[in-house]
C-alpha cells in the first residue's frame, strides 16, 4: 500500500523547513548572493541611467535565476551527500511525491528571497517594484523556475561536477520562462496598458503549467537510476 501522496509531500516540506530553520544554510546563501548580484548590477549600470531603468526587470530575473540555482544545488546536495535520497526512495512513496515535496520546499525558499529583493531593488534602483501584478508575476515565475530547477537538480545530483552541470542544463530550458517573465515585468514596471503585458503573464503561467506537468511525468524516470 502506498503512503498517501499528501502525507509524504508534507513530511518532506516540514522536514526541509525544520532543517533550514536550524541551519539557515540555504536562505542565507541565496539572499546574500541575490543582494550582491543586485549591487553589482547597480554599479555596473550606474553610468547609463536610462539603460539601468530599462534593465531592472532583467536584473530582477537574472538575479532570481542565479540565486535559485545556488539554492536548488544545495537543497538537493543535502539529500544526495549523505545518501538521504536513497532512504526516501526506499520508502513506499511515489516518486512524484518526492519531487513535489522538494519542489515546494525549493519554491518556498526562492519565493522568500524574491520577496526580500523586491523592496531592496525598489530602494537601490529607485523604482517601485512593489506592485501587485509584479508580485503575481514573481509568484508564478518563481514556481516555474522551481519546477524545472528541482527536476534538473535531481538529474544532475550524481554527476561529477553538479554545481556546473545544473546551470548548463537549466539555463537553456528556462529561457521561455525568463523571456516571458522579463516581458511581463517590464510592462508592469513601465505602467503600460494591461493588454500589452497581460499576454506575457498568461504565457508565463502557461509555460509554468506545461513545465510542471512535464517535470511531474519525468520525475519517476529521473529519480530511478
Amino acid at each position: 500500500m502506498k503512503t498517501r501522496f499528501r502525507i509524504a509531500v508534507l513530511a518532506i516540506v516540514s522536514k526541509d523547513l525544520r532543517a533550514e530553520i536550524r541551519s539557515r544554510e540555504l536562505l542565507s546563501v541565496m539572499a546574500i548572493f541575490a543582494f550582491l548580484c543586485i549591487l553589482v548590477f547597480s554599479f555596473a549600470l550606474e553610468l547609463e541611467r536610462v539603460a539601468r531603468e530599462e534593465a531592472i526587470s532583467g536584473v530582477l530575473w537574472v538575479t532570481l535565476v542565479f540565486a535559485s540555482l545556488l539554492g536548488f544545488n544545495r537543497s538537493l546536495a543535502q539529500e544526495g551527500d549523505q545518501g538521504n535520497l536513497d532512504a526516501m526512495l526506499l520508502a513506499p512513496v511515489s516518486r512524484p511525491a518526492i519531487f513535489f515535496g522538494k519542489l515546494l520546499s525549493n519554491y518556498f525558499f526562492t519565493l522568500i528571497v524574491a520577496l526580500v529583493i523586491l523592496p531592496l531593488m525598489t530602494v537601490i534602483y529607485n523604482s517601485n517594484l512593489l506592485k501587485g501584478w509584479l508580485i503575481v508575476t514573481t509568484v508564478v515565475g518563481v514556481f516555474g523556475f522551481s519546477s524545472i530547477g528541482t527536476l534538473l537538480a535531481m538529474l544532475t545530483l550524481h554527476t561529477r561536477s553538479r554545481e556546473a552541470m545544473l546551470p548548463i542544463a537549466m539555463l537553456p530550458v528556462a529561457l521561455p520562462l525568463l523571456l516571458t517573465a522579463v516581458r511581463a515585468t517590464t510592462g508592469i514596471l513601465n505602467d503600460s496598458p494591461a493588454r500589452e503585458w497581460l499576454v506575457w503573464l498568461q504565457l508565463l503561467a502557461a509555460v509554468t503549467v506545461i513545465y510542471l506537468a512535464l517535470c511531474w511525468l519525468l520525475s519517476g524516470f529521473v529519480l530511478e537510476e
Partner: peptide, 18 residues
Amino acid sequence: YGNLSARENLDFFGKLYG
C-alpha cells in the same frame, strides 16, 4: 539528516512509511 534530531529523523521516515 544532520540538522534533525534523532527523534525527528525517525519521525520523518515513519511518516514516509505511513
